[in-house]
C-alpha cells in the first residue's frame, strides 16, 4: 500500500471535486456557469453534486409528478385485479400493478434525495397541490380497458420514459432504465389481452373497440400540447430529451400500424401519415379537456384522491407503529 499521507486530499465521498461547479471557493454565478456548461454539454449530475436551485427544483418537480403518476396510476387498474378472468391474467395484472407501486417507490426515492421527504410529497399529492398524469383521472369501465391501458397507455409512457434514460440527472436516468425494462413486460401483457379479445367473440371485439375509442382522446393529449423547444427549461437542462410533439409522433409511428393491423379502428378521421414529410397529422386534441383533467377536475380525480387519502389515513397507525418500534439489536 502506498503511504496514505501522500494521497491527501483524497477524493471526498460527498462531492466530486474534479467538477468545477463542486468547488466551494467559487462564487455562485461562476458555479452556475460551470454547471450549465457541464449539463448542456451532456454531463451527468449526481445527487451529491452541487446544483443550482433552478435545476434542483426543476428535476424535483419533474420526478415528483412522475412518481405521483405511478402511484395514482395504480388505482384504475387495481379495481380489476379482483375481476381478472383467469389465474394467469390475475397474476399478470397483480404483478403489473405491483410494478407501478415499485416505480413510485423508486421515483419517490430519487425525489427524496433532492430534498423533499416522501411524506411531504404524498401530502401535497393528496391535497391537490401537485399533479399526476391525465390518463389516470378517467374511469376503467371494462376488462377491455385493462388491455388498452397496459398496451397503449404504457406504450405512450414508455416512449417518454425511454427518452429519459439519458436524462442529465443520473439517478433518474438509471431508474428509468429499470422502469423501461419492466414496462416492456406490461406492454406485452396488454397487447396479449387486446389480441385475445380482438380474435375472440363478437362481444369481446366490440368491447375492445369501444375501449380504444374512449381512450384515444386522453392518449393523444397525454404528452401535452406542442411547445417551443427554445423556451422549454427542462430541455435546456437536459432533464428530458424530447418535446411533447416528438414523443407523440414517435408513439403514433409505432402504434397506429399495430392497432390497425389487428382490425381495430381509430376515432380520428384526420389521422394520417404524410408520406412526403413522414409526419402524422391528426385532429387537434382537446387541450381544454387536458387542462381540466390535470387540475383534478377529471371524471375520477376527486374520487381517486379521496380513496388514496382514506387509505393513507387508515394505515397511518401502521407507519407509526413501525417507526416507533424498538430497533432490532445491532451487532
Amino acid at each position: 500500500m502506498t503511504d496514505p499521507l501522500a494521497l491527501d486530499p483524497v477524493l471526498p465521498l460527498t462531492e466530486r471535486s474534479a467538477l468545477p461547479f463542486n468547488d466551494e471557493q467559487l462564487d455562485h454565478d461562476e458555479r452556475y456557469r460551470h454547471f450549465e456548461e457541464h449539463v448542456t454539454g451532456g454531463g451527468k449530475v449526481e445527487s451529491t453534486d452541487w446544483m443550482p436551485d433552478e435545476y434542483r427544483t426543476a428535476v424535483l418537480r419533474f420526478v415528483e409528478m412522475h412518481a405521483n403518476s405511478e402511484l395514482m396510476g395504480v388505482l384504475p387498474e387495481r379495481e380489476w385485479i379482483m375481476r381478472a378472468p383467469t389465474l394467469r391474467r390475475k397474476l399478470a395484472l397483480t404483478a403489473k400493478v405491483q410494478d407501478e407501486v415499485g416505480h413510485a417507490q423508486l421515483l419517490y426515492r430519487v425525489a427524496e434525495d433532492l430534498g423533499k421527504p416522501r411524506e411531504a410529497m404524498i401530502q401535497d399529492l393528496l391535497a391537490g397541490k401537485t399533479k399526476f398524469h391525465n390518463v389516470f383521472h378517467y374511469p376503467t369501465k371494462s376488462w377491455a380497458d385493462i388491455g388498452i391501458i397496459a398496451w397503449l397507455v404504457d406504450a405512450a409512457a414508455i416512449v417518454a420514459q425511454q427518452a429519459l434514460r439519458d436524462s442529465s440527472y443520473a439517478p433518474y436516468a438509471r431508474t428509468m432504465k429499470k422502469i423501461c425494462w419492466e414496462e416492456s413486460v406490461h406492454i406485452m401483457h396488454g397487447r396479449d389481452v387486446v389480441l385475445t379479445m380482438a380474435t375472440g367473440t363478437a362481444d369481446q371485439r366490440a368491447s375492445i373497440q369501444e375501449a380504444l375509442d374512449r381512450w384515444w382522446g386522453p392518449l393523444m393529449q397525454m404528452h401535452g400540447p406542442r411547445s417551443d423547444r427554445a423556451k422549454d427549461r427542462d430541455l435546456h437542462w437536459r432533464i428530458k430529451a424530447k418535446t411533447s410533439e416528438e414523443l407523440r409522433q414517435e408513439f403514433l409511428g409505432i402504434y397506429v400500424p399495430r392497432i390497425r393491423e389487428i382490425g381495430l379502428t381509430l376515432p380520428d378521421p384526420d389521422l394520417a401519415l404524410d408520406p412526403a414529410t413522414g409526419v402524422w397529422g391528426y385532429g387537434e386534441p382537446d387541450w381544454n379537456e387536458l387542462r381540466t383533467v390535470v387540475t383534478n377536475h377529471g371524471p375520477k380525480s376527486q374520487e381517486r384522491l379521496d380513496f388514496r387519502r382514506a387509505n393513507w389515513d387508515a394505515t397511518q397507525w401502521v407507519r407509526d407503529a413501525i417507526l416507533s418500534a424498538p430497533r432490532a439489536a445491532v451487532a
Partner: peptide, 15 residues
C-alpha cells in the same frame, strides 16, 4: 392479499 396491491401501508410493503 392482492386487495392490498396499490394501497399498502408503506410503498415497500405494498410491493
Amino acid at each position: 392479499d392482492s386487495e392490498w396491491t396499490g394501497i399498502g401501508p408503506i410503498l415497500e410493503e405494498d410491493v
